[in-house]
Write a protein that binds this DNA or RNA. Sequence first.
DNA 1: TAGTAGCACAGAATTACTTCA
DNA 2: AGTGAAGTAATTCTGTGCTAC
Length: 305
Amino acid sequence: MMMAEKEDLGLSLSLSVPQNQHSLQFNLMPSLVPSTAASSLSGFNPQKSSWNATFPPSDQNSDPYRAETRSFLRGIDVNRLPSTADCEEEAGVSSPNSTISSVSGKRSEREGINGEEHEMERDYSRGISDEEDGDTSRKKLRLSKDQAAILEESFKEHNTLNPKQKMALAKQLGLRPRQVEVWFQNRRARTKLKQTEVDCEFLKRCCENLTAENRRLQKEVQELRALKLSPQFYMQMTPPTTLTMCPSCERVAVPPSASSTVDARSHPHMGPAPHHHRPIPINPWAPAAPITRGPTPFDVLRPRS
DNA sequence: TAGTAGCACAGAATTACTTCA
DNA sequence: AGTGAAGTAATTCTGTGCTAC
């Protein structure tokens, strides 16, 4: 039933946003990206659309059809009170292969209808019966499988419609342009919802993985801390007490007696000349500060630049 | 040129209805 | 037969961008 229908919708979703919108480019865990991501919404690519060869994609900024519509609208009063025909069109009409369960009530009055569309709406209103006309409850149409399939196909080609596309599709389906428009609106909403679900799932998995990684690292830190306390570890290392650091320049140095990679004589503050202050021993094993990390043995032994 | 009104359109939220378990 | 959940067509509201004045 619904599940099968849902699959038929062909909702191929991914983390990328369709068309011109920016992709969600998480690079956290590439391996986690759902397989659908790669092929996501490829159907929406307007560039390869064969439909667009017939009907240029709608462009809000430079849509010639909009301009056409506007210039037409300039000739009519779009704010007029609904005519009888308009009222009838509001009652809605079922296409031959779709089903209507009840009769619709009101509809936005602000909506302007361009000439062609207007005529079309009126055409559909002709078949209305008296009983439908009198019913004030909202009409709900059930699209036939064929209608839904065609709508899906065109949605795959492009998820928005310009007026010409809308008209053509409405004509093809035997629906009112408004119905086609509404279907596309709802379809976009469903797509977005599905996309959000996918995104949430992905982020959830990212979070889980990061938590696991964090736990692993914490454990590693604990192990290293435990290790540094063991005598064997000390044996392998130069005793920290032999290391000294100049508090002035924070360079590591060793007393002349100790062998080290850093020659105290070459150190400006620790040469034969009397030092202006006493070098302090470095304790690399001091517990790290809660926020700023204290020096590790590796930090101390690493030659400074 | 800037400001504004009118318009179309899209998205979000919601309602109302249908279908099914 | 009644009911709740899910799906979806339709409505309403709001924001945005464009055009004409």
